[in-house]
Computed example of a mutant assay.
Amino acid sequence: MFHGVRCVLFDLDGTLIDSAPDLGLAADEMRLSRGLPSLPLEAYRSMAGSGARGMLSVAFGLTPEDERYATLREEFLNNYERRMMHCTGVFSGVEELLDALRSRGLTWGIVTNKAQRFTQPLMAAMPLFADAAAIISGDTTPHAKPHPAPLWEAMRRANVQPEHCVYVGDDERDVRAGKAAGISTIAASYGYLGLGDVASWQADAVISQPGELLSLLGP
């Protein structure tokens, strides 16, 4: 159990929202346009937290070092931008969790590696997130996670010190960023997880559904 928590910071994709369907379909559209067979959503889901890099690795076996990567990445991002709210929604239990945090008088915020190009319209379309104390995108600060700079900026905006904050995320880089920022970390094992083994991340706690967070924060 964590004590003295005043603010909870969350990753976005795979922690608060399930964006895997729209991310996967944006990449799959590229396969279909090239005469390749469609892949099932489950092929994309585990890598959805890695954005374009993850989706292109599944769809085409590409890495950022491939000479075609930059061009295909921009095509993917344009596809995703057109459809990013078609199938995306919050995970079951997230609305109730945020309501409970509010009722306890706790502040909360979002720290994501998603670019503002996508974060801002998503947040505008989801009133549930309107009272976030901070929304930090991947390009809000000069560095993205696992660098601690985005978390430092979120804490500055929320007016909270590291010892009074926890960070919840579904990727190893979330835990690494939290540790580097001096924040207690919670791994969301219901999220995308990438290729990682949650146990190896050495987060301070692991939750298998959003509501489990409340029991970690004390009465």
Rank of each mutant, 00 (worst) to 15 (best):
A48V: 12
G49C: 11
S50M: 12
G51Q: 07
A52C: 10
R53Q: 14
G54C: 10
M55N: 12
M55L: 11
L56S: 11
V58W: 07
A59S: 14
F60C: 09
L62H: 09
E67Y: 10
E74S: 15
E74W: 10
F76V: 07
E81N: 12
R82I: 06
M85E: 12
H86I: 12
T88C: 09
G89L: 05
V94C: 04
L101Y: 00
L101I: 01
L101P: 00
L101F: 00
R102M: 02
R104E: 01
R104S: 02
G105L: 00
K114P: 02
A115S: 11
A124F: 06
M126L: 15
M126G: 08
L128D: 07
A134N: 08
A134R: 03
G138F: 05
D139I: 08
P142E: 12
P142S: 13
H143G: 06
A144N: 10
K145P: 10
W152Q: 12
W152E: 14
W152M: 08
M155S: 08
R157D: 07
N159R: 13
Q161F: 03
C165V: 04
D171I: 04
D174Y: 03
R176Q: 15
A177C: 10
G178P: 08
K179Q: 09
A181D: 07
S184M: 05
S184Q: 09
T185R: 01
T185W: 01
